[in-house]
Design a protein around this nucleic acid. Structure first.
Lengths: 212, 212
DNA sequence: GGGCTCGCTAAGCGCCCGCTCACCCTCGGC
DNA sequence: GCCGAGGGTGAGCGGGCGCTTAGCGAGCCC
């Protein structure tokens, strides 16, 4: 293992920034438990148990159970936004940038399915202020993808009638990967990423999408 | 209101088959509560209260809270399967049938978002046997869409490399509508259905999808 | 019109939840 | 060697959960 940011199973660990060690272990345990059972079905005893600690230990590092979800959600959304921003601002045509954005975004959802599931589907379990903060990040996510599509329309690469509707559809397609992807299934995250990049280019009207 | 199957807001009510009246009111209250807060965050007192009854009344008509979810999920999946079957077995080219299937499936998810959200996203809250039964229905849903796409590939209408992957993507796109659709948003279910039918045809390589 | 059934309620049981509190161990500073 | 701070534990509180039970009133049968 080269750095503390990677584990053997290949799932990127954006939790390196979480310290001290016990707080990170609790966060990781919470991610697993929330992904398996959902936020409301997960007990603080379950989280603490997975981290090898007593239930009370959780409250040394986090004020409430909701703070755990909030932290997970924010860090996850920042990572997702970072992935899309990197792809959107790279060199290359809109076609290349859209394909890169979709394939890396999908790889993140498939490879880090545990985290992605919590990040994408437990938003409603947050309180009003926390949810509002996260919704701000989601608007930025939307804006990055819409930006690429607008570039492609302007340059004539894409043929899109409803830019915002298509943006929503592209994001929707990527996000839903976290719901159905199965680590033990027949497809690797890379394969799904490549397939989805192709499908997305077709959606925006790139003629020879299949031949890329 | 012409029949008991329709309400003023236009959302189809597949609950007509649920009797007696009190059982149907409880089921409807449960759908609303599960959609708003999620299964685990909903209490039996909340469901009974929405239906204007005491908490104990619930247990006259349903053995457990989970039975409510199971009933909702089965009826909803049967309705979804029915919609796709009707479109898949209609007269017409694969192109026409796929467009019809997607647009009506999307209209159902958008127009009946409350129900669809519960049906599509609360599956994991069911126990093992109930979940297994519902997964059987989902396989049939998958098979209907895959059937249309295979027809289109055979007839030369579609250009699809990965049939099952594309099927998954099409279904994924439709299902995720239940997550983001907003009844008070700028789009009607019909508009989203039409847009998604177009995007889907592009995904399967129908050349003049935009001009239909 | 007496009695049975059915749909429903008021009250509450037992359990487990999120969270707290009093206390303990370890370790660095002097 | 003593002390304080910080990370940890065992026990448990208050409360709300899913669900049960005893009983009540309206309607139907004969």
């Amino acid at each position: 293992m080269s750095t503390a940011q990677e584990t053997a199973d290949g799932e990127a660990q954006p939790w390196g920034e979480v310290t001290p060690d016990a707080a990170r272990r609790l966060l990781l345990a919470a991610v697993e438990a929330f992904a398996e059972r959902g936020y409301h079905a997960t007990t603080t005893r379950d989280i603490a148990g997975r981290a090898g600690m007593s239930p009370a230990a959780l409250y040394i590092h986090y004020k409430t159970k909701e703070e755990l979800l909030h932290r997970i959600s924010r860090i996850g959304h920042e990572k997702a936004l970072d992935i899309l921003r990197t792809a959107a601002r790279a060199e290359g045509s809109a076609t290349e940038r859209l394909a890169d954005a979709v394939s890396s975004f999908v790889r993140w959802h498939a490879g880090g399915r545990t985290t992605a599931k919590v990040v994408q589907y437990e938003l409603d379990s947050l309180g009003p202020e926390a949810r509002a903060e996260i919704l701000g990040l989601r608007r930025q996510v939307n804006a990055e993808v819409r930006g690429i599509i607008e570039d492609g329309v302007r340059s004539g690469e894409f043929d899109v009638v409803d830019v915002q509707g298509t943006t929503l559809a592209v994001l929707s397609l990527c996000i839903d990967v976290a719901r159905w992807f199965n680590v033990n299934g027949p497809r690797t995250p890379e394969e799904v990423g490549a397939l989805y990049a192709d499908l997305t280019l077709r959606m925006v009207g790139v003629a020879d999408a299949g031949q890329r």
